[in-house]
C-alpha cells in the first residue's frame, strides 16, 4: 500500500511540471510541442513566430482579460454574464481585453489581431467568427478598439463598426468603461439581430468579408443608355455642319483694341467664419478591413479617448 502511495505521489510529482509548463502566470505556455498554442488553421512561420510567442496564451473560456485592472470583480461578473448571453444567442465568440501598455495605435491593433487569432477564440465556428473589444488605458495614448472576426463581419461591417465606436466615445472619455462595454455588447447584438443579406456577402477561406459578384443590371442599363444617347447626339451633330455665325472674331483687328477706361471699384467686403469641428471618427482610425500576422481577415476600428 505504501509503495502504491509513493508511486502515485512520484507520478504526480513527475507530471506536475508538464501541466505547469503549459501555464504561465496569466495562462498557458507556447512551445513547439503544442504548435505554440495555435490550434487554428494559421501556419506558424518564421515571420509570425515572434508575434505568436509574444501573444498571451489564455484560457478562452474566461472571456475577460483585464490586465489593466479597470474592472472590479462585480463589474467582471456582470460583464461575463452579458458576454455569455451574447455568445449563446449569437454563436459568435467574444473577448474583452484591457491593457496598460505604452503602445502606438498600430501596435494596439496588432495586439488585438494576434490575441484573437493565436488563441482558440471562435474555434467552434467555421471562420472563427467572434469579436474582440480592446481597451488600452496607457495615459499617453488611450484607445478602444473593436475588432470583428470571421462570420461576425457579416453582421457588423466597417460602417456599422464606426457607428458603434462613435457611440461609445462619451463612455470611455468619461471613464465609465463597464457601461461602455455593455453598450458595445448591446449595439453589436442589435446589428446581429438585423441579420445580413446572404446573397450579397460571404466569408472567404482567410476569414475576410467578401462581396458576392452580382451582375450590375441597373448600372449597365442606365450607363449604356446614357452613353448611347450622348454618343448619338454627338454623331448626329457631326452631320449638322451648317451653323449660324454669331460673332465677328475672325474679322477683329487685334491691334486696334484700345481700352478707354478700366475701373475696378471695391463696393463691399464681407468676411465670414466658421469653426472647424474635428471628426471624432478620424482619431484612432476609421474601421477598415485587413489581415493580421496570421493571415486571417478582420474588420477593425478604434477611437483614441
Amino acid at each position: 500500500m505504501k509503495k502504491i502511495i509513493i508511486f502515485i505521489i512520484s507520478f504526480l510529482l513527475c507530471i506536475f511540471p508538464i501541466f505547469a509548463s503549459e501555464y504561465d502566470s496569466e495562462g498557458y505556455e507556447r512551445n513547439e510541442t503544442n504548435n505554440y498554442g495555435v490550434n487554428k488553421k494559421w501556419k506558424v512561420k518564421d515571420d509570425n513566430l515572434n508575434n505568436i510567442i509574444n501573444t498571451p496564451y489564455v484560457d478562452v473560456s474566461k472571456k475577460i482579460y483585464d490586465y489593466a485592472d479597470i474592472f472590479n470583480e462585480e463589474d467582471e461578473n456582470e460583464l461575463k454574464s452579458l458576454i455569455d448571453g451574447f455568445i449563446s444567442e449569437t454563436g459568435l465568440d467574444f473577448a474583452l481585453v484591457s491593457v496598460n501598455l505604452p503602445y502606438t495605435n498600430d501596435e494596439d491593433y496588432n495586439y488585438t489581431y494576434d490575441f484573437y487569432d493565436y488563441n482558440d477564440f471562435g474555434l467552434n465556428n467555421k471562420s472563427y467568427g467572434g469579436v474582440l473589444f480592446f481597451i488600452n488605458v496607457y495615459e499617453n495614448n488611450r484607445i478602444y478598439i473593436s475588432s470583428v472576426f470571421g462570420e461576425a463581419q457579416l453582421y457588423v461591417n466597417e460602417e456599422n463598426n464606426d457607428v458603434i465606436l462613435d457611440n461609445l466615445f462619451d463612455y470611455f472619455k468619461g471613464g465609465t468603461y463597464k457601461e461602455g462595454v455593455i453598450s458595445y455588447i448591446h449595439q453589436f447584438k442589435n446589428y446581429y439581430d438585423r441579420g445580413y443579406d446572404e446573397d450579397a456577402y460571404y466569408i472567404d477561406e482567410n476569414g475576410s468579408l467578401k462581396k458576392n459578384y452580382s451582375l450590375p443590371y441597373a448600372g449597365g442599363i442606365i450607363s449604356g443608355a446614357l452613353v448611347s444617347l450622348l454618343s448619338m447626339l454627338g454623331l448626329v451633330k457631326k452631320n449638322k455642319m451648317v451653323t449660324k455665325a454669331s460673332n465677328a472674331n475672325d474679322y477683329l483687328v487685334s491691334s486696334s483694341i484700345e481700352y478707354l477706361n478700366k475701373t475696378d471699384n471695391l463696393v463691399s467686403t464681407i468676411t465670414t467664419h466658421h469653426i472647424i469641428t474635428s471628426d471624432v471618427s478620424s482619431v484612432g482610425g476609421s474601421s477598415h478591413s485587413g489581415f493580421g500576422s496570421s493571415g486571417g481577415g478582420h474588420i477593425s476600428g478604434g477611437r483614441n479617448f
Binding site: V253, S256, Y259, L260, K262, I270, I275, S278
Partner: peptide
C-alpha cells in the same frame, strides 16, 4: 480651428473701341 472667407465685391467698368475689317 476657424476657417475665414472674405468676399470682396467690385463694380467693374470697361470702355473700349476696336475695329473690324
Amino acid at each position: 480651428n476657424t476657417e475665414y472667407t472674405k468676399t470682396d465685391t467690385f463694380n467693374v467698368n470697361r470702355d473700349g473701341k476696336m475695329k473690324y475689317e
